[in-house]
Design a protein around this nucleic acid. Structure first.
Lengths: 146, 146
DNA sequence: AAAAACATTGACGTGGACGTTAGGGTTTTG
DNA sequence: CAAAACCCTAACGTCCACGTCAATGTTTTT
């Protein structure tokens, strides 16, 4: 399989593949007479892994650390040490993402509230008392608005 | 408050603040005799909002769209139209993040499996049968390994 | 064998979010 | 009233993940 075929099969550009090779993320299993890169099927899996991790906001450097250099052998099983390292990175990412998800959920709630407030013709209250339960100048539940 | 003080208070660089001003994300409420930017307390809140959204992977352009130009007035309430637009952006982000979280969870599970496999001294099976329940050459539960 | 399609290396371009330096002026501190 | 600390604008530099030529060589198709 030549580089163009592989690129099409994986949905990436030829340039991207060559760039991955620069970073040691992949490498052609051999070259043709004239110097064309030739790949076998294992390259597709490797690239799929790269794309998956990239979609999860990992940098190519991180991905290199997780998958290891292509020259170290592309196939399973990964070394135990690398797996542990990957797990650490993944857990950090997981933690980070779930925190962001929580923030987003909070933001959404806040936006909903503001929208409600707008619909009920209320305006923000500058001199509110955060300890009081409801607004003291109108029937609004939130002291920040009336 | 001068720009350096504000920067320190918000944990960003002076350069970043000037860059935000370029993008109309913030603006100094006034200038000193000699041309120094002077800010009041509301700037801090505005910058905190910017940082929060930035942490959620929004581009500064998106943030501008969500918060609106600083010159349009920094304070609440946002216009209903802007709120709806923000909600759309947030929901898209929320959707995207939760998908990534799911992928990460799957990856973590996969890593755990590989680690187990390594611990039990098993190796990947190239000629597995995905329909069979367990491995046919050893007692391993997964047909991909033995 | 000629054309079309595909590949090679090398090098410069891009965009976002600033960092950094240059060459000044301003405000505060001792 | 200096010196130090801070600020200004303008402009170029940086990093990442490629995009986009250019000039040339190789395979495939006709």
């Amino acid at each position: 399989m030549t580089i163009g075929t592989l690129a099409k099969a994986c949905g990436v550009t030829v340039r991207a593949l060559r760039y991955y090779e620069e970073l040691q993320l992949i490498c052609a299993t051999q070259r043709s007479e004239g110097g064309y890169r030739l790949y076998d099927a294992s390259a597709q899996k490797r690239i799929a892994a790269i794309l998956t991790l990239q979609d999860l906001n990992y940098s190519l450097d991180d991905i290199l650390e997780i998958l290891g250099k292509a020259s170290d052998g592309n196939s399973l099983p990964l070394k135990a040490q690398r797996i542990e390292r990957s797990r650490t990175l993944l857990e950090r990412q997981h933690q980070c993402l779930s925190e962001k998800l929580a923030s987003l959920t909070a933001l959404q709630a806040d936006l909903s509230k503001r929208l409600t407030v707008l619909e009920t013709q209320c305006t923000p209250c500058e001199t509110h008392n955060p300890d009081a339960g409801a607004c003291q100048t109108c029937e609004h539940q939130d002291t920040h608005w009336h």
